[in-house]
């Protein structure tokens, strides 16, 4: 799934990035199109620091995804979703799906790709739908307890390291998987961890 997603991501980026008005966002987009994702991260972060529109949060997250910094990307998407929910366009949601998929957050990936498919143009929508279907396919069987245990351990680890956004992403995924089990394995713990993580970054 990841390879296909990356291929599509690169193609889609060429078409969609670089339309922003801020010079740092424009430069970041140019770096992004040229495959210089580290430089893109820097420019998008500068744009964010300068307060160049809410979309800078999403650009940072997308560039981190393409830089292979998945955990930081997850944190950045959590930030963006909270601070700039209205700037979430189809391409950003698509990249969120890629980041979630890379981090093995299947529910998050499925939901993000579905949201992207609902508002994207025909080519991106088709790919996003396919990836969403792949993710949904993984969720047909009852999720194993071990997967929830792992996610909760990652959430705990994130909380201990002061990475509340990351902890929230893992705890939310654990809760979503627990809800798909008849015994709701450790659902309460996931809920508590999510509450703690949400309180942590406020």
């Amino acid at each position: 799934m990841r390879a296909l997603a990356a291929l599509l991501a690169g193609t889609a980026a060429l078409a969609a990035f670089g339309q922003a008005g801020d010079p740092h966002l424009r430069l970041g987009a140019a770096h992004f199109r040229a495959g210089r994702f580290d430089a893109a991260v820097v420019e998008f972060k500068v744009a964010r620091e300068l307060g160049s529109g809410d979309e800078a949060h999403w650009y940072v997250a997308a560039a981190l995804t393409r830089s292979g910094r998945q955990l930081e990307a997850l944190e950045a998407f959590e930030d963006a979703a909270e601070l700039a929910p209205r700037s979430a366009d189809a391409l950003f949601l698509y990249y969120r799906g890629v980041a979630c998929s890379d981090a093995q957050l299947v529910v998050c990936a499925a939901e993000s790709f579905e949201l992207a498919a609902a508002s994207a143009g025909p080519r991106v929508a088709e790919q996003a739908r396919r990836l969403a279907a792949e993710a949904r396919g993984l969720l047909l069987a009852e999720p194993p307890r071990a997967a929830i245990d792992t996610l909760l351990a990652q959430a705990e680890d994130g909380a201990q390291k002061g990475r509340a956004r990351l902890s929230a992403a893992f705890a939310r995924e654990a809760g979503a998987l627990a809800a798909r089990r008849t015994d709701r394995w450790r659902a309460l713990e996931a809920q508590k961890l999510l509450g703690r993580a949400d309180a942590g970054h406020r």
């Binding site: 580290d38 430089a39 991260v41 820097v42 972060k45 500068v46 830089s67």
Partner: peptide, 9 residues
């Protein structure tokens, strides 16, 4: 730990 990005900045 992003050395390349740090150098660029």
């Amino acid at each position: 730990g992003a050395r390349e990005a740090s150098a660029t900045a």
